[in-house]
Each structure stands twice: as structure tokens, then as C-alpha cells.
Design a protein around this nucleic acid. Structure first.
Lengths: 201, 201
DNA sequence: AATTACATTGAATGAAGTTTCAACCAATTA
DNA sequence: TAATTGGTTGAAACTTCATTCAATGTAATT
């Protein structure tokens, strides 16, 4: 035998991680089709060939990222829903955290942008599209449920809960995309502006 | 001489119009780089060659569309600002019209989406980028001015006017993008949800 | 009917990327 | 130190498109 297994596994895991992270950066910025394999490879100072040692194609990387994005998003939603907070606290907390996330330029923010970008484009792999169609509704449903709860105790406005959930997520997505363009210069707005759409005064 | 000039001019104008309109559709849906010249050509049942009779390149079409998009958008903003309405009426009107626009799937809606898409991507021609950077602030400024007016007469909430304008446009963009994905199924939310971010109760 | 001015076609060209693959290298174990 | 395993390279083969261009079609004018 040669190098021990753990060592190799570690190298492998790290490379995969590097590739995913850089790819995420480019996909979020330029979209799938405008991102070249060489963008990713040269940003990591590795050969293009190596990327194909880890992934079959550009699209496979993309699809894996979309999968992870929804896993994290949905996990966060499940977590939020299960917290011992009032509906009002949950929504206020979610908006605050999401805005905070957008200000930092980290993977978490890019995942969010990736979803927004991917959702906006028809030019994505079929598998990724399927994931989006399957998973995208969950976060909308969670927010709608929380809002419905809040309407029962009178702390939320009485617009249609689904419409409110729609506006919740599309507003966040709109901000994510704005941030993608203006990058550094972006400063998140006061969370209270957004919460005022939902809360009874 | 051959065909009369007017006739030729008419054919030319019509073709240009057709090409622009189809290109707008594809760019809005898939982005610049994922849109092939053959997508446009075959959707119009013309040869690829013919497109090059009218435009130098993919990018030229894109850039012209971006220019037109901002012309229209900015013209609408100028118009809005000059109307004899209160600030509150202006914002309410703008939101209503924008939401109405989104429900119809027409060029006007696609222009809006094009800007959102283009703004979100770094993979666009330098000239188009320049237009975006130059023109994109205007609509934000107009809305910010109207909001500032509304704050003076006490009908608007007192958050930072620039932040409110930011949320105004990013919320609309977020909805535009959502609509792009879900197309038919999209139903615009109650305009009052959005206005409640701005108006004093 | 012949001429002319353009619109239009589609095959050829070339550039830009993606993907494959044979050879190379680095580290561990025997 | 030799053998081995598997990560890594980069040039070559392939694909996919964008773009060009020589040839063709067409309708008005003479």
C-alpha cells in the first residue's frame, strides 16, 4: 500500500471543498454558463484536468451546490420553526439574520445568491432544475405557517399568508442580487423596514 | 434603382424589432451567455447569418436592449415625478403599476427582468455595464426624492429615504425574478403589502 | 424582360471552451 | 530503497458556437 487512506481522503475532501467554494463564487457572480472551468482552476492555481478528477462536469458541480444550498436553507427553516419563540420573534429574527448574512461576503451569502440566480435562469441542468422545483417551496411554506400563527394571535397583518411569504422571500432575494452587483458598497437596510410589512403596529 | 427605399426601410425596421424582441425574451430567461444566436434565429425562423446583417454581435443586441430598458425606465420615473400627485399617491401608483406590469408577460415586464438579470451578472459587455452603472442610480434617486417629500408632510415612515428606495426597487426586482421562474403561475401580491413598508399608518 | 439593390441563406471558418488521457510526481509502506 | 497508490499536470482531441462570406432570391424600376 502507499499513502495511508485517511491522508488521501483528507486531500480529496479538501480539494472538493476548494473547488465547490470557488465554483460557488463564480456561479453566484456570473452564472453557470459564463463561468469557465479555467476560471475555477486558475483561481485555485490547479490544472483544469484536476477538476475533472473530482467532478464529471461543470454542471455536476453546479447541481451539487444547488443541492447543498437547499439542504442548508431548509435545515435553517426547520430549525427556525422549532424554536421556542413567538411568530413575531421568529420573523424578526429571520429577517435580521438574513440581512446580517448578506452584509458579510461569505459562502452562506453566496449560496443564497446562487439560488436566486439559478431560480432566475432557465439555462441550468435538468437535475438542478428538478431540485429547485422540489425544494424551493419548503422555505415558502415554513414562512407562511409562521405568519399564519402570527395572524391567529393578532400580531401580524391579515393579508394572505402565502402572499406575505412570497414577498418575504422575494424581498430578500432582491437584496441578495443587489448586493451581488454592488458588493462592497452594499449596506443592508434597517430590518424594521422589512418587518413593517408583516407586523401589526 | 430597385425596391423603393421606404419599403426596404420598413423591412429593416421590422426585422430589427423582431430580433430585439426575441433576444429580449431569451436574455431575460437564460442570460446573455447561455443564449445562442441560433436560439434567436430559429425562434424567428430565419438564418443565423441574417442576424449579422442587422447586428454586429450578440453583445451589440444585448447592449441596445439594456439601453432601451433604462431609457424607458427612466422616462417612466421622470413622468412619475412630474405628476400632480402627493408623494403617497405617487408611490402607491408606482407599486400598483409595476405589479400589474409583472403579471402581464410582455416586453415591458421582460425589460424589467433583463435589468435585474444583467445587474446580477458580471459576465456582460463592458459597454452594457457602463450603461447600467451610469443609469441605474436614477430610478433609485427619484424614488428616494419622492419618499423624502412624503416624510416632510408626515405621510411616510421616517426610515432613511435611501434605504427605503433600495427596498422599494429590490422588492420589485425580487418579484420580477420570481415571476421569471414561475411564469404562468405567478400572481402578484396585494400592493398594500408593499406600500405598508413606506406609509405611516 | 433585364437590371439593380438589397434581403436572405447556409456552408465554411475560426475561436473558445470542455473533456480526455497518457505521463509525472509525491508520499507512504515494505 | 523499491514498489505502489493515487493525486496532479498539460497537451491533444472534441464540441459548440459565433461570425464571415460567396451565392441566391426577390421585388421594384427601367
Amino acid at each position: 500500500m502507499a499513502r495511508n487512506k485517511d491522508m488521501n481522503q483528507k486531500i480529496k475532501d479538501e480539494r472538493r471543498e476548494q473547488i465547490l467554494s470557488k465554483a460557488l463564487m463564480f456561479y453566484a457572480k456570473k452564472g453557470l454558463s459564463a463561468t469557465k472551468i479555467t476560471d475555477i482552476a486558475s483561481a485555485l492555481s490547479i490544472s483544469q484536468g484536476l477538476i475533472y478528477h473530482y467532478y464529471r462536469s461543470k454542471e455536476e458541480i453546479f447541481t451539487e451546490l444547488i443541492g447543498t444550498a437547499f439542504e442548508r436553507m431548509n435545515e435553517a427553516c426547520r430549525w427556525l420553526e422549532s424554536q421556542p419563540m413567538t411568530a413575531k420573534e421568529k420573523i424578526a429574527f429571520a429577517i435580521q439574520e438574513l440581512l446580517k448574512l448578506l452584509e458579510k461576503d461569505e459562502d452562506a451569502a453566496r449560496y443564497h445568491l446562487l439560488i436566486a440566480q439559478a431560480a432566475a435562469s432557465e439555462a441550468i441542468p435538468g437535475e438542478a432544475k428538478a431540485i429547485i422545483e422540489k425544494e424551493n417551496t419548503f422555505s415558502y411554506e415554513v414562512i407562511a405557517r409562521i405568519i399564519t400563527d402570527g395572524q391567529k394571535d393578532g400580531s401580524f397583518k391579515n393579508y394572505d399568508a402565502k402572499e406575505l411569504a412570497l414577498v418575504f422571500w422575494t424581498s430578500i432575494n432582491g437584496l441578495a442580487i443587489y448586493k451581488a452587483v454592488h458588493g462592497e458598497k452594499f449596506k443592508a437596510p434597517d430590518a424594521a423596514i422589512l418587518t413593517s410589512m408583516f407586523f401589526q403596529e
